[in-house]
Design a protein around this nucleic acid. Structure first.
Lengths: 230, 230, 230, 230
DNA sequence: TATGAATGAGGCTTCATTCAT
DNA sequence: AATGAATGAAGCCTCATTCAT
């Protein structure tokens, strides 16, 4: 009997090891992508950094692109979850909570966020991973219904401008997207007040589209907290 | 003597031909970049499309990257000029004119704008063209002083929130940057109200950071013009 | 005591299982080879199709080539047996029986025959399996003596041309070899009278080298049986 | 004026050099294929042997397979021409001339003929070069009409068996195909009378399908010329 | 004993750049 | 000056074989 248990255990353990290695590959790839040019990251380098053979990578991913898209999917799932939590909070009364959560989530790892943006641009025409990209879009749109409901209510309440509800969340999406670019833009990041800037932008994101009739009461706006640098 | 004149003419004509060809290369590259994946555009294809030999391309540009960066520079100069014009208008009283102009300019050719964004991501680590990239940043920042002046005044007038003036224009930059991404995002562009959406976002860009104390009088906001689609 | 018996049984059973599995591998490999390009058949696929692990394959065969050569050996043994039977019949009076049997045997599974031909071409330079290839040749030549005896007699009787006896059977070999190629040749098999064609060729094989002085009496020749298609 | 001529000359010369190099690649590939296992011939080796860079090969051939198929096409064109000449001769009275020419042509370079056979087996499923393979088949079938005409006449004259005419030439094809295999078969070529054997087989090829009613008068048959070896 | 994850040599192909004409 | 053939480094991926469990 004990042998049976140990056999099952062994299988489970093997599976765990296998999944661990998969994560190792992802982590290695991620580390490399964040350190150097995307073009400079080869499967060989990833394998090296992960401490495994090149061939092993292909036991886990059918093509190099599958590694990239996997990074994207992992990231987007995380973002979608954060947004979902924010929506929940918003439905309990805190009107701006969804946008707030979304901005926070995406600006938490701006480097990673930007990487995902860039990867998306590169994989646009990739013929393998078409399905995974569709999945990516699904994840992004996964909270659309809740968002629309919530926003429709707020529009009804006169808090938000009366435009199609998706205008509101797409504007948010755009602003974060750009904020991330801004963070790393060599044109602008010679300044050293990024954190304050991001807070300012987040605040815009939270209030944009507001009609101005109702104001959230106790927000931490950049207005109140004098930035240290100029 | 006539021969001398004709010689000078010939030289001038040659120079013109040379410059024409340079533009032809740029145009060819652009056309290709907008049509297919960036990775799929080779120097060969560019030369073909430009109707010249591959070797000739290298008489005009030292490396492939120089072509790319040239596209970026041309574009950014144009944007900077539009912004300058907007600032001028703003200084004549129309507070939101700068942002308005900027948004309009960048959303005029969103495909091209997006291309430039993507190229920038790819050239980040390029070791040739370091100087040109620096030039690119300079162009982007070329209107900073005027902007800062203008914004400082508006902040002083209580029209804009009292944050470092660059917060205002960088937020704008971010929003446009994201709006362009939004335009082409496969995740979102299954909707067909892009034009209205962009108008909505532009309006946000023009009014964001406003204190709400003063309103521009005769703006075309989406609020007033009911969008056709939902 | 009963345990001893059961132990011996178990060993026997194990051996049987082992051999069964070996056959399973061969069958799986064969099925794959006949279905797809030889190059497309990997050890992995064979193991999968056989329903066992890849590692297990290597418990039965030291290298992939050993599987291939084993298929060839199995096939050639069968052919040699058929030929032997034909020779026996020929010695009992039916002069063309040997050739007849040989053609029939080889054209019974032309797909398999062709596969073996192709495998032989590929394994020519293989450094493992040198011995097995030698064995293959031995099998092919195993009936040489009987054939030579028989043919020498027929030559003596004036039935066959007076050339070295092996000329006769090698010509036969060549003709079948080519007939198999013909069967599958994309250049020719757009016609749909393969069966008749093969009968025609078989008949040639049976009579070629004949002096014409004596004719077999009751043969099914294509001459008598009008083919249906033209 | 002289410059114009020299310019045209230069272009012509360049084209010639280009074609020469193409032939060099083919020759190098051929040499390698005839020397070692087909699998052992890599594009790198071909380039090396041809004395050019690996990349240059791809200026002449889109894929490796295109080199192989080109070898096949060149060969088949040559064979088809020889056959055509034979048919012409046959139509002038020498009934067996076509078969004779065909056998002679294909056995002239049995090593090359065999190579082409093997290549065909390998390229069967190749997805590039589908068109070239179709061309190959066309070349093979290019003399079908002339052959059929000729054979139909001979059948009408009672010289050949009354079967569909293509039976006759396909039987020939099969026999040569096998004869080539025979030439190099490690199973049989331990003998040293290959030349005589081939003559014997050729003779069979020339007379097979004959009704026996009419005999060609002055043929060099193996019957009359005692082979030297046994 | 059976397994299948791991390995890495080596194949094909691409493409920016050079340079002789 | 214009050309485009030549180059070869470097990338992705395959698969026969090994070996620890």
């Amino acid at each position: 009997m004990s042998s049976k248990i140990s056999s099952a255990d062994r299988i489970r353990e093997k599976k765990k090891l296998f999944l661990d290695r998969e994560q190792k590959i992802i982590d290695a790839a991620l580390e490399l992508f964040l350190k150097e040019s995307i073009d400079a990251v080869t499967v060989s380098k990833i394998a090296s950094k992960a401490g495994i053979g090149k061939g092993t990578v292909y036991k886990h991913f059918l093509t190099k692109n599958e590694i990239l898209v996997r990074i994207m999917l992992d990231y987007e799932r995380n973002i979608a979850d954060c947004l979902a939590a924010g929506i929940l909070k918003a439905e309990k009364g805190d009107a701006g909570a969804a946008a707030q959560s979304y901005f926070k989530a995406r600006l938490a790892r701006p480097d990673l966020d930007r990487l995902v943006q860039q990867l998306e641009g590169r994989l646009e025409y990739a013929e393998d991973i078409v399905e995974q990209l569709e999945e990516l879009h699904k994840i992004r749109r996964s909270n659309e219904d809740s968002l629309s409901n919530m926003l429709t209510k707020q529009i009804g309440a006169g808090v938000l401008e009366d435009v199609p509800p998706h205008f509101h969340y797409l504007a948010c999406w755009a602003l974060v997207q750009g904020a991330v670019d801004l963070w790393y833009s060599r044109s602008w990041n010679y300044r050293h007040d990024t954190a304050d800037l991001m807070e300012f932008i987040t605040n815009i994101g939270v209030t944009m589209g507001n009609t101005g009739q109702y104001h959230p009461v106790s927000k931490n706006t950049t207005k109140k907290k004098k930035p240290k640098t100029s």
